[in-house]
Structures are given as structure tokens and as C-alpha cells.
């Protein structure tokens, strides 16, 4: 049996209610004696709310409103040392820097987890449109690209292994006794101490490992793959064909995203679109099949999406149309869209 209060809420939540139902619900909200019941009923909807309908534009608006207030409150409260450091850091940062995990926090968490026997994991996520610095408990640092996840066990010092979805640049702290392992798209990259980039976005159907310094060993479970890379080598594994190629490259084409560059050298347009889409948190749709394979070269740094598209249209036979997000019926914004089509 559905309770009466619950039915009222259900209808109200779903925008199907009569005037009498609305009035009954208002009475419930008013009545202090029924507060506990109301709370129980609302909690069900609270647990279901996921916010995925809410646009990133709305998120930016909300954050843009609250951030200055927090900073103000912070200055008002006390001029404590750590806070001010963070504060300054945020002002200097040219881009939005998300979760920067501090080792002290890690120790706190690890200590707490010792009681449980299960392996617990921490996860760092970087949303589209943003790059994020990260710091692991062993002192390894790096950058996480937009729409990427990095997962690692909290007992990290005993087991230096991370799992990557998306793209990251690692600067691994050297520790001869404990190898550092990156698992990405089925590939295992083992390192001692080095700087390298791993790209493993699902939609590209390949994993790329680009080595700046040191040495890494790339393996894949269940296969005989066992490649040792030397600096400036670039390994690509096609995850659908299971084919591996290694060549020497100018590594910055594959790693300069961490410094805010977008570099394309003979990259097919559909991949350019996918990368730009992640970079600017926009859906970029290519309307004409024939356009998708056109190779493209360009380097961008700190350009707006509008400018990047204008430049793109100058050097490739395309027209573009930007569709600003409009409110859908729930008054919630959709993602911005760009449509690329063939220029006649």
C-alpha cells in the first residue's frame, strides 16, 4: 500500500497533481508535527536525485556565485595559513584545478581503513572541460585530462598501482623496491621512475603510451606483448585489432595538453572533434561522413571554442554552427552543441 503522503509527493514530483493535492501537500509542509514523516518521505526522492540532468553551464553559474562568498567568509574568519595558501594558489591557477590530493589526507584515510580487511580504493575524477593536477601518496604527481578517472588503492605505498580511464601524464617518484604500475585499457605499463603519458579514452579504441624520460615496460595480460620503451618512443595499441606499433616521435605532440596546448598533426577530423569536445565540454557533431577522415594540423593555446572553430574553418573545407544550450522543459540547460558540415 502506498501511503497517502507518499502518493501526494509522487504526483507532485512528477508534475501531475490536482489543486486539492497541492493544498494537502502544503499542509504537510506546514505541520511541525508531521515533519518527521515528511522527512522520511522526502528522503526517498533525495536518494533518487542524481543531478545528471543539470547542465554544466548551470554548475558553473552556481559555483561562480558561491566561490567568492566562500573566499570572503574565509578571509573574514581567520587568516589561517593553509587557507591562504590554497586561496592564492587558486587565484594563480590559469585553469580550474580540481582535486589535489594531499599525502597527509591520505594517511588519515589509510589509518582509518586499517580496521577493514577489504582493499579500499580512492578515485580522482576530472570532468570534461577541465584539466586537473593530482598528487599520489608516494609523491608521484601528474595531470589528469578532461573526462578521466584515476583509481588507486589506499594502501598505496605497499602496492603502487593505478587504473586509468581517459588520459593522464605521470611524473613517477622513483622507488627501486616498489614498481609503479599503470593499468589502462587492458595494457599494463610498469615503471621505475619516469615521465610519460597514457591516453586510453574508450571511444578512441586504442591506448597510447608516450615516454618522455626513463624507461617503461608495456605488457598485456594474456598476450606475449612485452615492449620496453626508451625516451621519445610512442606506442600505440589498437584495442579492437590487438595490434601494436612503436615509433619515435616528438613527444610534446602527445603531452603538451597538460600545459594547455591542443596540438594536432595529421589527426583525422572526427578525432579532432572528439578532443575539442572534451576540452570545451561541448558535443561536436560531424554531419558529413566524408569529413571525418580529413587529416588536420594545428596548434592551439588558450583559445576560445569560437576562435578554434573559426581557425578550423579557415584551413579545412567546413562550415560550423554553434547551437547555444537552450533550456529544456525542466528549465535545465543542455550541453552546448556544434555542428560541422561540408563547405560547398
Amino acid at each position: 500500500m502506498v501511503e497517502k503522503g507518499d502518493r501526494l509527493l509522487e504526483n507532485f514530483w512528477g508534475d501531475r497533481y490536482s489543486k486539492a493535492e497541492y493544498e494537502a501537500l502544503v499542509d504537510q509542509f506546514k505541520d511541525d508535527h508531521q515533519l518527521e514523516k515528511l522527512q522520511t518521505n522526502l528522503a526517498k526522492y533525495w536518494n533518487l536525485a542524481d543531478g545528471s540532468q543539470v547542465s554544466d553551464e548551470m554548475y558553473k553559474k552556481l559555483w561562480g556565485r558561491i566561490k567568492p562568498q566562500i573566499e570572503l567568509a574565509e578571509v573574514k574568519a581567520e587568516k589561517s595559513r593553509v587557507d591562504r595558501l590554497t586561496n592564492t594558489f587558486y587565484r594563480i591557477a590559469a585553469i580550474l584545478v580540481l582535486p589535489l590530493l594531499l599525502s597527509s589526507l591520505y594517511f588519515f584515510g589509510a589509518w582509518w581503513e586499517l580496521s577493514g580487511s577489504e582493499t579500499a580504493y580512492a578515485e580522482i575524477y576530472c570532468p570534461p572541460g577541465v584539466r586537473s593536477r593530482f598528487l599520489l601518496p608516494d609523491g608521484t604527481t601528474g595531470w589528469l585530462n578532461g573526462d578521466s578517472y584515476l583509481t588507486y588503492p589506499v594502501h598505496f605505498l605497499q602496492n603502487r598501482s593505478v587504473e586509468l580511464k581517459g588520459e593522464a601524464y605521470f611524473d613517477v617518484r622513483e622507488d627501486k623496491r616498489s614498481p609503479f604500475l599503470v593499468n589502462a585499457g587492458g595494457l599494463d605499463v610498469e615503471v621505475l621512475g619516469t615521465q610519460f603519458n597514457v591516453m586510453a579514452y574508450d571511444d578512441f579504441h586504442r591506448v597510447e603510451v608516450t615516454l618522455d624520460e626513463g624507461a617503461v615496460q608495456v605488457r598485456k595480460e594474456g598476450t606475449s606483448l612485452n615492449e620496453v620503451l626508451v625516451p621519445k618512443e610512442h606506442l600505440v595499441m589498437d584495442t579492437r585489432e590487438n595490434q601494436v606499433s612503436v615509433k619515435t616521435v616528438q613527444t610534446h605532440y602527445f603531452t603538451s595538453w597538460k600545459d594547455g596546448f591542443l596540438e594536432f598533426r595529421n589527426v583525422p577530423l572526427h578525432e579532432v572533434a572528439a578532443r575539442l569536445g572534451r576540452w570545451y565540454n561541448t558535443d561536436i557533431i560531424i554531419q558529413d561522413e566524408a569529413l571525418k577522415q580529413i587529416p588536420y594540423r594545428a596548434t592551439f593555446k588558450d583559445e576560445s571554442l569560437e576562435r578554434v572553430l573559426a581557425l578550423l574553418a579557415l584551413s579545412a573545407p567546413i562550415n560550423y554552427e554553434i547551437i547555444e544550450p537552450k533550456k529544456n522543459t525542466d528549465e535545465i540547460y543542455e550541453k552546448r552543441k556544434v555542428i560541422l558540415s561540408y563547405k560547398n
Binding site: 536525485a49 543531478g51 554548475y59 589561517s80 593553509v82 587557507d83
Partner: peptide, 19 residues
């Protein structure tokens, strides 16, 4: 009292609360 701690929760839950 670290801003990035606050930012994390805002990032994870502000959309849920808005919805």
C-alpha cells in the same frame, strides 16, 4: 577549512541538490 575540500563536495552534490 581547505577550499578544495569544499569544492569537491560542491562539485559532487550541488547538481543533486539543484535537481
Amino acid at each position: 577549512g581547505e577550499l578544495h575540500g569544499f569544492e569537491y563536495f560542491f562539485w559532487r552534490y550541488s547538481k543533486v541538490l539543484f535537481h
